[in-house]
Design a protein around this nucleic acid. Sequence first.
DNA 1: TTTACTGCAAAGGGTTTGCATGAGG
DNA 2: CCTCATGCAAACCCTTTGCAGTAAA
Lengths: 148, 148
Amino acid sequence: MLTQQELVERLREWQVRVTPQRLAIAEAVLNSTDHPSVQQIFERVRDHFPSMTLATIYSTLGVLQRSGLIQELPFQKMSRYEANMEPHVNLVCIQCETVIDTDTGQDAVLRLRNRISKESHFEVAWQRVDFYGWCPSCAAAKRAAQTA
Amino acid sequence: MLTQQELVERLREWQVRVTPQRLAIAEAVLNSTDHPSVQQIFERVRDHFPSMTLATIYSTLGVLQRSGLIQELPFQKMSRYEANMEPHVNLVCIQCETVIDTDTGQDAVLRLRNRISKESHFEVAWQRVDFYGWCPSCAAAKRAAQTA
DNA sequence: TTTACTGCAAAGGGTTTGCATGAGG
DNA sequence: CCTCATGCAAACCCTTTGCAGTAAA
């Protein structure tokens, strides 16, 4: 998680103008761990900028992505946004649609990346590792429904 | 890759009606390794079924996905379809947009999946492991452009 | 014969674009 | 000041839905 100051410097490196809207959007994503959608970011920022529109959100998310600060995660219905740029595993619940980062396997993802870089002639820029299934509470609910 | 006969049996297990259109669509995806989009599947099937529409393609892909024969891979602009249901790594070229399956790391993905299942309370159903970057030919072109 | 798939058309909805205004460097 | 971001509206396009006719079992 970056401080506001670090964020400003990071954007200036990319010749990107820093505006209050952009800082608010950046913080809404970077200070989150729930992989928010555009709509969720919109709702979180609306309090401070009631006149902001989705077009500004989309535009800013594009800038942040090109600056390497966030990663877009396209899903079937919509994209969500990842603030954790370290190699890691996402656990995606197909029931309640929560997405959480897990520490488990972080080392394995990094090793896998190094292995791909060495053993194939593919130049890796970034990666996305998603495991889909049932989160603890939805798995419990599912088992309860099956026995009933 | 399944034979047409195996495919028919597999669909019947799911109480799914087998039609010539469905077989054509299924084969267009299952006998491919390039992760085709809906449009590409459409073009490949159009020769044999000139009257087929995209609605049928979407409908059938949904059936195949629920039958566990294929996996939808949502990307930013559109979805592509995966015929390789074994745990593996996809290499996605961000330049030419080709997606290939690689043997490298298949074992690692499987081990990672087992580890997630054991060490977290998450019930894994399937996974998607994508490495994004430059394929060999696009990487070469990129280096040539940089030195020029 | 019954069920449900195909094909056509229209709607849906996340995302992108164009442009006038306004703010950042 | 000059450039570029914001906000508003409209367009875009992938995908979904509804329905009448038709084919599978």
